[in-house]
């Protein structure tokens, strides 16, 4: 049985840490990241969700909501930049 006051925060905290480290490794050295920025952006979601989990385990729910919604804007800004740069042929 999972105790909500004891076990649950630990579960989400550890899971968040694992996702953060895994995600960081994936963003840094994951397959095909060096070639395609879009893949790097997709990989970046993993550590972001990890951070969201950690914030949740500290009960910072407002901060977590902000992280998630800012993440959407992050996508928009970076993808727009990719499109612009790709059009100019200056991405690589």
């Amino acid at each position: 049985m999972i105790s909500p006051t004891e076990t649950l925060p630990w579960i989400s905290f550890y899971l968040g840490c694992i996702l953060l480290i895994l995600g960081a490794l994936g963003v840094a050295f994951g397959p095909k990241t060096a070639k395609e920025p879009i893949i790097r952006i997709i990989n970046l979601t993993v550590p972001t969700i990890g951070i969201a989990l950690i914030l949740l385990s500290y009960n910072y729910t407002l901060a977590m909501l902000t992280v998630l919604s800012v993440n959407v804007m992050y996508y928009i800004i970076t993808i727009r930049a990719i499109i612009r740069l790709e059009e100019m042929g200056a991405l690589y």
Binding site: L19, L22, G26, P31, K32, N43, V46, I49
Partner: peptide, 14 residues
Amino acid sequence: MIVGALGGLFLTQA
């Protein structure tokens, strides 16, 4: 989450 993370990181097709 773990499945999603591993898949999200290590698959190659966007």
